[in-house]
């Protein structure tokens, strides 16, 4: 069989670029790459920073338990983003909505539980200064994983790139907040809702926008 039966324009395009390619690694392996970066960042922060002052008074399920839950859910979201990036393997729209809503719900519920169980507000939490501090820490911790996830997403061919970006942004921040939850001395609910959950929303929006820009550039270049 030859390429003769194929229209000329297509045949020439194929003939001019037919070098072998290496297939994309499976989703779980690419997720592990993002998780490795996440683990290095979070472990280095945990090694240097001191735990929240009310750590001993919080029940185990709320301190380390919620942290592990957030970490696991963050990794799951990163995996979903990378799965969404592969054509023909995208996750159903309903599952995307559930994942995004659960990412926010996890943040909010952890915040509410912490404010209820924490014996005292150990720092004034309504101020902007501690909030900006938390947002900065969250950004610094989430950014490497977020960038790695987006890079892995865009190396595939996401057909709903904004959706993949949104899931990647949510995953990176929820996982990073697993450590912030162990460090942040402010248990005030408004602080957690505005600044911690706000960081998740901001990264989801950035991921969505990055996906939209990528999609426009990718398909504009299309012949």
């Amino acid at each position: 069989m030859s390429l003769d039966a194929i229209p000329n324009g297509l045949r020439e395009a194929i003939e001019n670029d037919l070098q072998p390619v290496r297939p994309l690694h499976p989703v779980w392996l690419r997720t592990m790459l993002a998780v490795a970066i996440l683990a290095v960042v979070l472990a280095s922060v945990l090694a240097k920073a001191s735990l929240r002052p009310d750590m001993d008074q919080l029940p185990m399920w709320l301190s380390w338990g919620c942290s592990v839950l957030q970490l696991a859910f963050g990794v799951l979201l990163i995996g979903l983003a990378l799965r969404e990036a592969v054509p023909g393997a995208g996750i159903p729209r309903g599952a995307v909505h559930v994942a995004a809503a659960t990412a926010l719900a996890v943040q909010i519920l952890v915040g509410i539980a912490t404010s209820v169980y924490s014996p005292a507000i150990t720092m004034p939490g309504s101020g902007v200064t501690p909030g900006i501090g938390c947002l900065r820490h969250e950004t610094v911790m989430a950014l490497p994983t977020f960038i790695a996830t987006l890079w892995l997403v865009f190396r595939a061919l996401p057909l709903r790139a904004p959706t993949a970006g949104l899931l990647g942004g949510a995953g990176a921040t929820v996982a990073s907040d697993a450590v912030i939850h162990l460090l942040c001395p402010v248990a005030n609910l408004s602080h957690v809702l505005v600044w911690h959950s706000g960081a998740v929303v901001v990264f989801m929006a950035i991921g969505w926008s990055a996906g939209a820009v990528w999609e426009r550039l990718r398909w504009r270049r299309a012949p």
Binding site: R22, P23, L24, A89, A156, L157
Partner: peptide, 26 residues
């Protein structure tokens, strides 16, 4: 155009997954 896109994205197919969902999605 679909075949051109399939060509440009051929590394995103991971064997031994089914080919048709990948092709039809693109």
């Amino acid at each position: 155009e679909s075949f051109l896109q399939l060509h440009r994205a051929r590394q995103t197919y991971t064997p031994p997954r089914p080919v048709r969902p990948w092709v039809y999605a693109i």
